[in-house]
Design a protein around this nucleic acid. Structure first.
Lengths: 334, 334
DNA sequence: TTGTAGGCGTTATCAC
DNA sequence: GTGATAACGCCTACAA
């Protein structure tokens, strides 16, 4: 690999000049610029970005931390972030936190140590305090899934409680009264909040919450399956299940059908997230929209604005979930 | 951020000694080691990995390039690679190639310029020659989706033609004779090979291939939908559709139902890839297994073995697709 | 076992 | 406009 030094020799100029034309940040005469460019071409020179980072203390790349690298949710988040960054010629360095405190911290440290210019973080296991401290360390970052008052400026998030409320409210509105709930892991804030929203809606309709009709799942298809199994075994009748995410809803639908239940005629199913595949399930899943792609894009823009451009622009911090009506919920005649 | 120099000062030893305890690659007396460790702790020192990379020319990270960051296929590939790497304390740097030649090349260059120790590449648009040349540049890498004789040692791939054959062969075996085919973008090798397998199976059963019953899709759900629309419009009857991947199969199922067709009674559907969600579709999708997670893991191990350990171990290069029978194909009584 | 010093490939601050 | 020459933070012979 050619170095900047070899280029400077071939072009017959100093190393500093080559650097100037690479970065295009100082005036260089057209003539020498041409010479340098030519030399770079014949040597097939490519700047070593590690050295650039070390010297300039910036890397033109932003670090992204998601819980998992698979899953439609993280997929569309990563994808839209990367797209936005790429448009500006910035790169993404992605790593996974596995919803585990130690892993998440390691991931963040890794990204920092690679001198990412900024971080976009979907952290679940780490404490609020950790993030507050992180801010003091002067690493520019945004979190995309939580709200921490002390660092509100760095938070981009969804009103999850409202989402949970909307889902169950819709079910109630359609006449359902016996509603089972498949929650996410309740130690996760979003799962908890969605669950709270569910209970809030019930209360509003004077429907008492039955603990036995609630199952704490894992946000995966297979969790939805197990949930249905358990729920059915209680022997308690229910006409609808609200699921804390689409993946579990898919698992639930599959398990319900397996047990001979028709959807939505026997039992209605409600999802959450509005992942791409929810449009292709049978029946098409009614759900609550989580504009994760948009939020990812917003996060990327936050970073881009803060770091690489001067333009001021207003960034939306809180996003609202919205009801998506499709075919998996039955209008219930009381 | 503390530097190695400050640590050495505080510990009262030389900078070299600190480096030694960081890397644990030379003998340091217990006593000084303790001093250094203590100093590191009180300064909350973390090595700057950019500087480490520059000095040592290795980064303890491997670069991964996939076409897209979303999608269940790439998701499980990335996920399993990252898991395997993490177990060895190595990190993944992921980027997307967007199935575009320029993008793919840029991505590879980016990963190289960040001095990744090795690359795991899922390249589609780039030429074989590019990869052959890449090998000459002395960058250790594996490709996971193509076979190039000149660099066979670097290739991990699936027998796609066999897969396409298996799918259609199964349909034929069940008595289907009028079989539509939804292909992937035919400029992609795997799409092409699967299609070839399809035609091969037809020929074996003396069924003539009808060009009008084939649609070139985009490997996405929405492509499957459009395909069905087009296929139905031809007015040509068919009792089964073989899809070049599960995503399009999901779209096809959805569209078929919309048009009032029952699956599999009216029309059978066959997928390809065996993505997680295919177990949760309705009806459960019969498909062909693409062991992408295993292949990702294998790729990671190849890298790990070649780079960081001495242990010789045999690596499997070619993987075989396998039939997965579920509920979306009807046994046809002729 | 420990220290010295040169080097990794750039950037950036000076002078000229 | 252009060219020396220190950094940047760390690794690694080579010496001691």
């Amino acid at each position: 690999m050619a170095t900047i030094y070899q280029v400077s020799e071939l072009a017959g100029v100093s190393l500093a000049t080559v650097s100037r034309v690479i970065n295009d940040n100082a005036i260089v005469s057209e003539k020498t610029k041409a010479k340098v460019l030519a030399a770079m071409k014949t040597l097939d020179y490519r700047p070593n970005s590690v050295a650039q980072s070390l010297a300039s203390n910036r890397s033109n790349s932003v670090g992204i931390l998601v819980s998992e690298l698979h899953g439609a949710f993280y997929g569309s988040m990563m994808s839209d972030i990367e797209l936005a960054l790429r448009e500006f010629g910035k790169h993404a360095i992605i790593t996974a936190g596995h919803s585990d405190e130690k892993s998440e911290k390691e991931g963040v440290e890794f990204l920092i140590s690679r001198s990412c210019d900024a971080l976009i973080l979907h952290l679940e296991a780490v404490s609020d305090q950790y993030l507050i401290d992180l801010k003091k360390r002067n690493v520019p970052f945004v979190t995309v899934n939580r709200y921490i008052p002390e660092i509100a400026e760095n938070c981009i998030f969804l009103d999850n409680e409202l989402g949970g409320y909307i889902a169950t409210h819709y079910l109630l509105q359609q006449g359902h009264r016996d509603i089972a709930y498949i929650a996410g892991p309740l130690w996760k804030t979003d799962a908890k909040q969605r669950f709270n929203g569910h209970k809030k809606a019930l209360k509003e309709f004077d429907v008492s919450f039955n603990q036995r009709l609630m199952y704490e799942g894992n946000f995966q298809e297979e969790g939805g399956q197990k949930a249905i199994q358990t729920l059915l075994e209680t022997g308690i009748a229910f006409s609808a299940v609200a699921c804390a995410n689409d993946e579990m809803a898919a698992g639930a639908m599959s398990a319900l059908r397996e047990k001979g239940h028709n959807i939505p005629d026997d039992i209605s199913v409600m999802g959450f997230d509005n992942l791409v595949f929810s449009r292709f399930t049978f029946p098409k899943l009614s759900t609550v929209n989580y504009p994760i792609a948009l939020m990812g894009k917003t996060a990327a823009n936050w970073v881009l604005n803060n770091l690489y451009t001067d333009r001021e622009s207003h960034i939306q911090h809180i996003f609202k979930p919205e009801l998506v009506v499709r075919d998996s919920v039955k209008k219930f005649n009381q």
